[in-house]
Design a protein around this nucleic acid. Structure first.
Lengths: 180, 180, 180, 180
DNA sequence: AATGAATGAGTCTTCATTCAT
DNA sequence: TATGAATGAAGACTCATTCAT
């Protein structure tokens, strides 16, 4: 029994420390040697906890995806009404944008690793469902919001300065005022 | 006398035929052998026209980026007023979305290939400038629209069915009615 | 814990086993695959201990050059007077000629590998200095002897039978009788 | 009939222009592209006049070897007596040393190109025979002289400044005084 | 359980040679 | 005959994975 906890903790630690490298370099450009160094463990240890490189990348996406949703839901729960939740969402985007953008990069890589796009697609829908559950917007507004969120993450990667956070925040506030 | 070749045409052909593979697999996962096969030339020919793999990927982004802008501007020019141009933009997204999404994938890879993010960032701004010039929206609307466009491209990659084109089209139309 | 290895011993072993191949084929004609087979290790191991082929060739020259001088000095030290040392030198040439000729081949390659001829030239001067120190001949005699030694090594490569060892031995003996 | 002369002239031109590159880089490091550029012809032309790279290197040695002997004999013929010839030989070494050293490099490479050392060995003996014929020294002196000549060429490659031409010249003069 | 040296298939790239023009 | 673009086998080198310690 005590071992299992350790194993999961080790795996989680490896995944967390792998995140940055996979997001920055892309699956195909990450080297096991570089990964081991970034994680701060030996190559052998990586292979002790994961069967191969692909498994790390795939587990990584699941891991960080789950964390992101949990954090998002946790934070949006800080307010009861939709307007408040939207404000918290804008806050979340602002201080977690870099991390979310990295998660998106990892998701795009993950999509390339699977022949069937199922896992990645389902994960995206999970994100969307969490949004639905928290905000209860009408479908059209939510669809727009979802594209807007993803788009702002992409822009965060390609041109962080080019993005006007206030504009996005205002748009979200306007959704709070429209119907639901 | 040796074979007479149009060097620029050959380079363009290689880049066009490379596009799909780089977009689908990502720079680090593309193999020169696979690339040669996909392009339909010998490995040697690839190296005759480009110094190395990296140069192909970098030229590729410039090449497809330029083409995309040219096509977009060409199509938006089909209408004089903003509302018409926005309708044409929605049309463009609809029938060229897959290609534009691929360009985005290539752009994200390109960003990872350069230590300084200058080229990629400048390219993104070029896209944005073309939008400004064609639509003349106020900055806030344009900022939103830009995120929305990029977001819909990302969704096209991760979950094409999850995207409601009509919603996005309606949003663009609403921009046509608002001020400028 | 990983295998514990004596890095210097491994490097020395690789160099010793590389010697023959580089001497026989010349730097440009040696293939890493052939080298690995000749050394009796994997290609990967060669690259584990040396950054590249060039580094092997360059280290090789330093390694065998040092060994040759050590052996020569060791053997000439077997006698106290100049005549005796000259006799020992002739003996050394006779039973180590093939190896010394190989070292010369490696030295000539080494010269071609560096843009500046410094290292190779300095090594040659080191050989010469060892001679000076051991024999204490006048400069002219030593100069002649040095050319003679190198010439006999070249001939050993190009036409071993064409060389009259006794003649060279006699000449060396004559140097023992002349002034110093 | 007229064609044959042209063909031979072209071949000779290619060989002469190849000499320097082969001597400096060694057979295995010479590239056909670099050779074509050095010679000032197209790669196609090289293959028009020689079946392959190896044939060029092998013809090269024969070509420059023949030229060297002819020039040496021609110059030694400028004097009737042995002392004079030895003086001319020293002169020859002094102003043609660099070229002769290159020939030696080419010879050493040539030796590595053939499985049987016949051609190279025979060429060396031809040089020796020319010496015999011109100088008529006793065998022992000639043997010494031959090693000395080759040794001075090697030193010219490895450390040109370290060689005392006067010492070598004096030695040759001393041979002129000794018996024959 | 942990390490990292060792392996060698597979990568990018080169280059002798061919051949269309 | 001459050219150099094209080819792809072979070269140097990398790197995911294994395994002795």
């Amino acid at each position: 029994m005590p071992r299992i906890v350790d194993v999961e903790a080790e795996r989680a630690h490896i995944l967390e420390a792998s995140f940055r490298l996979f997001a920055e370099q892309g699956y195909g450009s990450v080297r096991m040697r570089g990964l081991a160094k970034a994680v701060g463990v030996s190559i052998g240890k990586l292979y002790h906890y994961f069967p191969d490189k692909r498994a790390i990348a795939q587990s990584l996406f699941v891991h960080v995806g789950r964390q992101d949703i949990e954090e998002a839901v946790g934070r949006l729960s800080g307010s009861e009404d939709r307007a408040g939740k939207l404000r918290l969402l804008a806050d979340f985007l602002e201080d977690r944008g870099a991390r979310l953008a990295s998660t998106l990069m990892v998701a795009l890589d993950h999509r390339r690793l699977e022949s069937e796009p199922d896992t990645t697609r389902d994960a995206l829908r999970l994100y969307r469902a969490a949004l639905t559950q928290q905000l209860g917007l009408d479908e059209a507004d939510e669809d727009l919001l979802f594209s807007l969120l993803l788009g702002s993450l992409v822009r965060q990667v390609l041109d962080p300065e080019g993005l006007d956070a206030q504009v996005h925040r205002d748009f979200m506030e306007s959704l709070g005022r429209s119907g639901g």
